[in-house]
Simulated scan of single mutants.
Amino acid sequence: MTTSTQIQLVSRPVGTPTTEDFATVQVELPELGRDEVRVRNEYVSVDPYMRGRMSEAKSYVPPFDLGETMTGGAVGRVVESTSDALPVGSAVLSSYGWRDVAQGPAAHFSPLPETELPLSVFLGAAGMTGLTAYAGLKRVAGLREGDVVFISGAAGAVGSIAGQVARKLGASRVIGSAGSAEKVALLKDRYGYDDAFNYKDAPVRKQLREVTPDGIDVYFDNVGGDHLEAALDRLNRGGRAALCGAISQYNSTERTAGPDNMANLVKNSLTLEGFIVGQHQDLQGEFAEKMTGWLADGSVVFDETVVDGIGNSVRAFLDMMNGANTGKMLVRP
């Protein structure tokens, strides 16, 4: 028998999750059945959308079940197999996260190409994270040559890639927000942002106005709240906003106030569209070809914040929700 260390949700958080809402358990894995694989995960992803799955509120993905091991993105290598399609040693992607050893039907695991890049890139820049940035900017916001783009949460997993993708798609100027002076410097020095500001220094509305004298054409929203309100002030006529997330509100226990300037949608013929990456899987092939090329030639860079030990997954998740990560937050079991 093989033992798998797994993380389960044992109570539904009210407000900010705490470590008491989770349990670390040891699960004995049975012998492999026909056409099954056992995989040792090398990296496990923790993402903001998982906060919504900890609630019973209706959403685009079902909630985690209490007392059951949670799921999420993971990459690893097959260590045992009864599948001809996935022999021992195969690199695979799955949704069997929040555990160090995964087991299930081979059909639940997707083979990954062998490249010079670490497997973790398929959870970040070359995975769902990167596709989110690409689909949101290209299709949802309809980014056009010469557009001025503002991205909130720009030093996070999606934001750090989105700024670079915006440039690749023809943006003339890219502005970002982040939560520290160090991250602001990183946006400009590493990720190619033309300007950036620390949203903690002064009201976002004031700071965005100062750095966008000619307004913006596209807003990629990871934060919501005061960032969305500020963007509505600065979007030019015909401006478009791709609403990817609202991390500023995920732990709120009270109804959050809406922007006070929604009339700008009518006045400036603005378009706001929320999206989830699963709606745009048809872009996967196009995205993968472009992103692997950009990563290979170094014209797109990525960063990861890695926490070691599957038992530290909850801490990694909570740190990510508090903005402690630069780039993609990962757990290395």
Score class of each variant (00 low, 15 high):
V266G: 03
L32W: 06
M262E: 12
S55P: 10
M128I: 14
V78T: 14
S83N: 02
T69Q: 07
G323V: 14
S269C: 10
F197D: 09
N198S: 11
Q281F: 12
S59T: 06
L169V: 01
L295W: 08
T326Y: 12
N251D: 06
A246F: 14
Q26V: 09
T253C: 07
W294T: 03
C244L: 11
G97W: 14
V211L: 03
T16Q: 10
A246L: 13
P87A: 14
R51P: 04
F220T: 14
A23P: 00
E210V: 00
N312L: 00
Q8L: 13
W294Q: 00
R77N: 11
A242Y: 01
G159D: 08
Y96N: 15
V37W: 04
D319F: 02
P333E: 05
K290V: 06
E254T: 14
G15V: 03
G72C: 05
T16N: 06
D35A: 03
N251F: 08
S94H: 13
R34L: 07
A171R: 04
R190Q: 15
V266K: 02
C244D: 07
A133K: 03
D226H: 14
M329C: 07
F275I: 08
L295K: 09
S11L: 02
Q8Y: 00
A107F: 06
Y193A: 00
I310L: 01
D233T: 11
I247D: 03
A74K: 14
D35T: 02
S45N: 04
V314A: 02
S180K: 12
K168D: 10
V61D: 00
T82C: 12
L243T: 09
V140H: 03
Q279P: 00
R12Y: 02
M128H: 04
S177R: 11
V92H: 10
S120M: 01
E36A: 01
S299V: 06
E182H: 10
V44K: 11
R38V: 05
E20Q: 11
P113G: 01
A178G: 11
N222L: 13
N312I: 08
V14H: 11
G72K: 10
R315C: 00
E28R: 00
V218N: 02
G293P: 07
